[in-house]
Write a protein that binds this DNA or RNA. Structure first.
Length: 455
RNA sequence: GGCACGAUGGCGAAGUGGUAACGCGACGGUCUGCAAAACCGUUAUGCACGGGUUCGAUUCCCGUUCGUGCCUCCA
């Protein structure tokens, strides 16, 4: 049994897919204008964990994650600076559709790289916004036919939130402040109205209303419904999406179709650094390669995230990451020393299922891993089999043993040290040990002889 | 300013109306020629502060303080 915290109802609800077998799930994906930082990546580790949990308990999962590869290549008072525009300027690319395409390809590739190094299962469909312009136009047209839109000349097509009595049903709306209201309403009919299409005389796509670019929310509505149907099971995203993006998505989709867009809405909390959110403007936007440079592997990062609940903020520090890294390496090494051939421990697995089924309590699941390791009543091969089974949910590649490549000269030093130790020439042995250390390896003396660990 | 949310040991972080998981670190031990590693053990009389409800609160309620997020795009 799986219960999930649904932002719509603000409580945990028992989940099962509408059709009883296949979960149709949509995850808000990245805007590919820059390398994802580790905070962004938390959202994808979360959606991946969700997918793995749903599979583990026996559902099929059809997962769709969008790639936002379009901006509107202009800045205006309603939007702040367009992210794609920002990216183009930063990389010295031309402000054009071609430039945008190049930028998007560059960062889509890096995003795929990040997903794979985090052992995130590739979503079944990763649609790009620019490949779905007709679908977006079609959705706007449906809204127009039903009278939910208005056009502002030389600006765009807008969604009229005053026509939707249910607008904001996901919550998170904050009262309109007087100052903002007066600044914004100079051109929009209502302060919460949002663009469905932005005009641009010089570039963009043709549409019934004029050349331009799709608005900032329409792509998710168009693509989720195309691949998952007009009504699907789960929609996820970062907690920041609740007030604007997801309320807008709901308004667009549900007013066009007359059906609820998603039954469950799930949102992950932020990762903070020094109790502060991650933002490029603060200069704390670490990426995966930044972690790797400090010796923290992507999977150690994943392990660390799993020690916190997805709806709790987690606070980054190098100390915390180093601790997680040590724990993760220890865990793998213990498992690799356990014999194979065991079978799943049913009692422990029942606990595991109840933890992950309780709104994805990965911290408890992880503590259970350590519990079973320390449990003297469980056979070693059973521990191994059980933990590796759980790894389908944890996604930590606990079965991977890294082969250490030992250079020839180090092998030679090792051999000499072995001889020195056998003849009890401790000074020689110790100096050989420090020589090996200079070459980047730590020597461990185990009952089975010398072992090397990369520093 | 408005609206939310949060405050648990040196660090990260679970959790519960009945007396605080797990990991890292630290300390002690076993092992070792010495180390390292590994393994074993110990490690919050306490869950921001002040009240209240209760037989009993870290857990519920009220207030205070502090912090963060949102109110422009943002995982």
């Amino acid at each position: 049994m799986v219960s999930l915290f649904n932002t719509l109802s603000k409580k945990k609800e028992i989940f099962s897919p509408e059709d009883g077998t296949t979960v149709r799930m949509y995850n808000c994906g990245p805007t590919v204008y820059d390398r994802a930082h580790i905070g962004n990546l938390r959202a994808y580790i979360f959606s991946d964990t969700l997918r793995r949990v749903l599979s583990y308990v026996g559902f099929n999962v059809l997962q769709v994650m969008n790639i936002t590869d379009v901006g509107h290549l202009s800045s205006d008072q309603d939007s702040g600076e367009d992210k794609m525009t920002k990216g183009l300027k930063r990389e010295g690319l031309p402000l054009s559709l071609e430039g945008m395409k190049e930028l998007a390809e560059r960062y889509t590739l890096l995003f795929e790289e990040d997903l794979s190094s985090l052992n995130i299962i590739h979503p079944d469909v990763m649609p790009r916004a620019t490949d779905h312009i007709p679908e977006q136009i079609d959705l706007i047209r449906r809204l127009e036919e039903k009278g939910f839109t208005y056009v502002i000349a030389n600006d765009g097509v807008y969604f009229d939130t005053s026509k939707d009595p249910n607008y904001g049903r996901l919550g998170g709306l904050t009262p309109i402040s007087e100052a903002r209201d007066s600044a914004v309403s100079s051109f929009k009919h209502g302060p919460r109205d949002f663009a469905l299409w932005k005009f641009n005389k010089n570039m963009g796509w043709e549409s019934p209303w004029g050349k331009g670019f799709p608005g900032w929310h329409i792509e998710c509505s168009a693509m989720s419904m195309k691949y998952l149907g007009e009504s699907f099971d789960i929609h996820t995203g970062g907690i920041d999406h609740i007030p604007v993006h997801h309320n807008n998505e709901i308004a667009q989709s549900e007013n066009a179709t007359g059906k609820p867009l998603a039954r469950f809405w799930l949102h992950n909390a932020f990762l903070t650094i020094n109790e502060e959110k991650i933002a490029k403007s603060i200069g704390n936007a670490l990426t995966l390669p930044n972690l790797t440079k400090q010796g923290i592997t992507p999977l150690s990062y994943r392990y660390w995230l799993l020690t916190a609940h997805y709806r709790s903020p987690i606070n980054f520090s190098w100390k915390a990451l180093a601790g997680a890294h040590t724990a993760y390496e220890k865990l793998k090494s213990r498992i690799s020393n356990m014999p194979t051939g065991g079978s799943l421990d049913i009692a422990y697995d029942a606990k595991f299922r109840s933890y992950i089924g309780d709104d994805l309590n990965t911290p408890k699941a992880l503590s259970l891993v350590w519990d079973i390791i320390h449990d003297e009543d469980v056979a070693e091969e059973v521990k191994r089999a059980t933990i590796l089974d759980w790894d389908a949910v944890l996604g930590l590649q606990l079965n991977e043993t890294k082969d250490v490549n030992i250079p020839e000269d180090v092998k030679e030093l090792l051999h000499r040290r072995k001889l020195a130790r056998e003849s009890k020439h401790w000074d020689t042995a110790d100096s050989l040990r420090s020589e090996i250390e200079k070459k980047g390896f730590l020597v461990k003396d185990t009952p089975e002889g010398q072992k090397l660990v990369k520093k």
